[in-house]
Design a binder for these strands. Structure first.
Lengths: 205, 205, 205, 205
DNA sequence: TATGAATGAGAATTCATTCAT
DNA sequence: AATGAATGAATTCTCATTCAT
């Protein structure tokens, strides 16, 4: 009984530290952030961090982990196959852009670090990147087979599809004020563009 | 006479260090890279670095500076106004994607650091980002006025236009092998997509 | 309760480091002394120094600070006004010379550095030098008004008064063995000289 | 013939560097002063310094050397024995205070460094300090023998005699504005005080 | 478990000195 | 002889990690 309670307490404490870490690291990057800063933001002592994480790198991995869970929860292209392409894209993009906004700090941390951290890149590729694209590729293959999408390389198309929201995301990370202030509009425009993207022009008929 | 020679020597040495820095930093990020590593890669002593740069941060600024020059050289939308939209986009994207590939390491450094370095972000925004988008916005405005592009917000459209190549770039930075291995195809696909992007359907008529 | 204990521990540790610093710096000067040397003398690790002082300069300031406290404790010319001039000078000089001997290393550090360190000079002037002389000037003024001292500029006289013990001090700092070995005698001689210094010759009456 | 000319050129260059060094070092101390700063002040290249001095320490020694020459030139107590004590002291102190003012920067350098530099202290003691005091002691002994000075330890008396001008000097080095601005008055007061100092009261007779 | 002082390895930077020109 | 770029040893300072309380 007490074990469970203790476990929950520990989990919430761990979560507290990870969230604090995301907040600080998003501002200044992982390397520039000290364990002391994370501890202060989390309201615990420096040493306490090490009761929950083996070392500083483990915090970064935990951020990715936490991010991955949220990410994976979203990846339900199976559901997609029951809905028409256009409708699904609309819904999906809206959903993802909302998610991105909600977890923007974490995404910032993950992207910035993944670019320059070989070990993390491997990890992220294995856990998020590759599986996500595999699902997308299969979905596009399905669409092409169904004649809902023009013939073409689904691998390449999945990347081009992802590139647009990712690009806008990065512009936001780079500090583009127009993107920050008009996130909803960008979300809608991206959805619109990706709806027509590769779609067969059955609509005109 | 000798002064000029000396100046050239110093310039080339400086360039040597910056290029060495780009190579190392692209691999592991700015903070993780030590001045010693840069010096070794450049084949000079640690102290020599400080004959050319005030401190480590100044090396990062020099990388941005060098990158900016290449960048700005490319931004000639004035030329563009003499050519039809489709042709210009084809040509321009091809050119830019080639440039990106050629300076990929530098771009990696600049993007990764800009995301997490407030000071650098301000610098990059002032020197590259804002001017580049202003030119693009004016060009799109011109296109819309000419009826070559569908009416719409040129500010937003410029960002969406840029997002696609940036997104592909970032996918490459994240280690996507398909993007790495098929850069040419992506370049072509992006050009094709952006050609239709926002274009008025005069062609059908 | 524990806080107080911790505070005392921290204070004594800080004091330990300052005393170690005085010992080493008095031997070789501030600039020539490395933080590593101070740490070794204090029996702590290099990094520990920085838990108590922001940087190396802060150690120097702390030395001055500690010295100032001792200094200021001594400056009680108010007491003086109740005692005849001769008696007070005798007592005061004796006292000061003892103090100087006890804190000779610290005095050495403060004087040597103050001469060549503009920032420290300002600090020392503000905290020790000016207030000390103001008190002395007022005391001399009082003596002159009382007819216990010959008329004259109290500002100038205060400096001449101070110059003698300071001069002997400096001779000792310069390594004069006779001064080192006969400190007590010098103390007595100075007291004798300063007793007659400026005194009205009421004694002959 | 040419050798002599070259020698003179070299000497004047050397002198130039020493004077430049005095100027910079007096401001910030020996350790804080870089060879580059001295070179700049002297208007020569860094490397040139090493054509005239073995290393940085040699510059300090040269400063002391140059100072010693001036010092020794002044020390002619032999002359003194022909003049009455009072007249000699008047003249001598006036002369020395003028000299001190003229070479104040050099004196500052020598004193500040001698306090904290063991090696230099030995050197200065051997070359300036000890010989100077020996002469003074002998002179005082002579005065006592002649009945011009009260009986007493000439060694101790020589130090007390020197302490007053040295003390005022140090006050000036510590930044005392009153001493700086009233140097002449201090010079006169010191002369007056030292005239009576230890003098036998034959005058009253 | 939580704490935070202590640690010391490692990083940035300085600068006396050398040496090719 | 003069120059000043190159060097790398030495120094200051930071910070991840440990551990006694």
């Amino acid at each position: 009984m007490e074990n469970i309670f203790q476990q929950q307490l520990a989990d919430s404490r761990r979560r507290l530290i990870v969230d604090a870490a995301i907040a600080v690291i998003a501002e200044q990057g992982f390397q520039r952030t000290t364990v002391k800063q994370i501890a202060q933001m989390a309201g615990v002592a420096d040493g306490t961090i090490y009761n929950y994480f083996k070392n500083k790198d483990a915090i970064l991995l935990a951020i990715v982990e936490q991010f991955t869970e949220a990410e994976v929860r979203e990846l339900d292209f199976n559901e997609a196959q029951k809905v028409p392409y256009a409708a699904f894209v609309q819904m999906y993009i809206k959903h993802r852009m909302d998610e991105i906004e909600a977890n923007f700090a974490a995404l910032k941390v993950v992207i910035a670090e993944t670019i320059v951290n070989e070990a993390l890149r491997t990890e992220v590729n294995r856990k998020i990147y590759t599986p996500a694209f595999e699902i997308a590729e299969r979905y596009f293959q399905h669409l092409i087979a169904q004649g809902e999408m023009q013939p073409g390389d689904p691998v390449l198309r999945a990347r081009l599809f992802a590139a647009l929201p990712i690009g806008i995301c990065v512009l936001r990370m780079l500090g583009d004020e127009h993107v920050v202030e008009n996130w909803e509009r960008y979300s809608a425009e991206i959805a619109a563009l990706l709806t027509t993207f590769g779609a067969t022009d059955d609509k005109t008929t």
